[in-house]
Design a protein around this nucleic acid. Sequence first.
DNA 1: AAGAGCGTACCGCTGAGTGGAACGCCGCCG
DNA 2: CGGCGGCGTTCCACTCAGCGGTACGCTCTT
Lengths: 249, 249
Amino acid sequence: MEDRDTVLGKALMILRAFGPADSVLPLAELVRRTGLAKGSVHRVAADLARHRLLDKGEHGYRLSGGLFELGLRASAERTLVELATPFLQDLYERTHETVHLGIREGHEVVYLAKIGGHRQARTPSRTGGRMPVHCTAIGKVLLAHATREERTAVLAGPLERRTPHTVIAPGMLRRQLSRALETGIAYEREESTPGLLCIAAPILGNNGQTATAALSVTGPTGRFKPETHANTVRATAAALTSTLTHRHH
Amino acid sequence: MEDRDTVLGKALMILRAFGPADSVLPLAELVRRTGLAKGSVHRVAADLARHRLLDKGEHGYRLSGGLFELGLRASAERTLVELATPFLQDLYERTHETVHLGIREGHEVVYLAKIGGHRQARTPSRTGGRMPVHCTAIGKVLLAHATREERTAVLAGPLERRTPHTVIAPGMLRRQLSRALETGIAYEREESTPGLLCIAAPILGNNGQTATAALSVTGPTGRFKPETHANTVRATAAALTSTLTHRHH
DNA sequence: AAGAGCGTACCGCTGAGTGGAACGCCGCCG
DNA sequence: CGGCGGCGTTCCACTCAGCGGTACGCTCTT
């Protein structure tokens, strides 16, 4: 279980020490974050650089293009993104707001794609980034379509308050989820980020038994009225769902 | 230089054994491709799975979501993609054809982003995929703006013939490159894939001294006339260029 | 039934990997 | 200034993680 004494474990500790926000980290910072011996970090980092997973610059290391390339070969999420892209485009063209594609992983949402124009709202989400399920529209639809066990697990666990509007009352959240299951739509109103509204619909698999992913439209309070796009979002999600199932051999 | 006798080297040989086309590979296939000992591959692959870089399924291994996530944190290409997205959207919305963003790496082009709609031409390119520089529009613009040394290196090296239209005559190619440098536009006419046309413009850095990336529009022979979009593509590339340079520090 | 090819398990040898220690180089501050 | 703390780098003797040949059990195909 301990990663600290295998080369691969160390390597991944180093790679994962880079938060989504960090661009370049000095050796000392890596040592601090990983808790590994300085010598080890030095050597492993150098090895990683040799293999094009890290770039060694003047001011430290950064995750490199080799990693980028490698990651984009990951098959499951990759084909999903490729098939979804045209539908995401549709959604963007109709709304001209930020469009997301995400999947659920445990108690978090992972964003697989994010597209937006020049006027897009300032969202904290990034492609490959994560967010708690309970305070995002995508998270809620996905949770609504998850198994009873997973749902109760999230509802039981601590629900982090991200903004004054974050729903942290399990009862309230449960009601929102069953509503999402009925309507095939979930909303978020400034629950993860102040000033942001969001509407999401699920992409279903296994003849509607599970939700494999979800897509959403996000916009700023004021000009953006999520309900307006309910039909568009639901229709797009349904179209993508049928494309995925029919292409399923 | 030999990767075979370091754990990290082995791990990467395994990961890179997955071609862009492969989705799931059995252990035996990995052994064949890497040339490593069966026992070693077994163990290292298991380790990689433990670290969420591989998924171990019924029929073999596949690159996993952990790798996908990790790759999307790579900073340099990531911020480029994020800043470029709105411009790529513009381009797509105006042309409704497949839009690419790519950089050059040695004698190859790496595609960082690819967006397209339902009617998109069937392109062999994939996000994170590679193509030779000499037979793609993006490759040619980038090469045109590269240093003299790099240009001659590519022109000297063997120029693979991909289709009957591939330009493999160095003189011809050189002429196309200088024309691309003058006009700020490069074309490809069925040189990498039969039935595909493409037009590309460079995104410049260092006050126009180098090309950091390039974007392109691709369409099928017949309805698609690349020259039509010359101004649009050039203008979009210029706009992105200025966004990148004006970005404070 | 016999063979080929697969994934898995075992195990003794060994050198790749380890991490503590020491070094030289800054930039900061008293 | 001179001393100090933090940095990246290098060194080195120990040792156990990793190695890979071998063997086994399974599932197909022949």
